[in-house]
């Protein structure tokens, strides 16, 4: 998969603004979540000093959810879309 990213993302993103947008929105979303985690670390509940909640608070950690959404979107939607975009622009 890493080779796939190296092959597709830089090529399409360099060639067109459309590719740059598609390649960028997922990582940008994850970066926003990461920045949020640093600004408000108390929103990551597993860092709570006395423990909080249980299963649901371990599942629902807002900044981590945002990071996860960005990664999943990039992996499962953006990369196949970039492949199609590269094919379209080559044709």
């Amino acid at each position: 998969m890493a080779a796939r990213i190296d092959r597709i993302v830089p090529a399409v993103a360099r060639r067109s603004r459309r590719g740059l947008v598609v390649a960028g929105v997922g990582p940008l979303t994850s970066l926003a979540g990461l920045a949020w985690a640093f600004v408000q670390p108390w929103r990551i509940t597993f860092l709570h000093p006395y423990g909080k909640g249980g299963f649901w608070y371990l599942l629902g950690e807002p900044p981590l959810l945002v990071i996860l959404v960005g990664i999943l979107f990039h992996w499962f939607v953006a990369l196949p879309l970039l492949e199609d975009l590269a094919g379209e622009e080559d044709a």
Partner: peptide
């Protein structure tokens, strides 16, 4: 807890926005 439900729904809205942008 209700707050966790709101957070989980927010992930769906982020994805809807990302789909539309792309």
């Amino acid at each position: 807890p209700p707050e966790v439900v709101h957070w989980l729904f927010s992930t769906g809205f982020i994805l809807l926005g990302l789909f539309l942008v792309c």
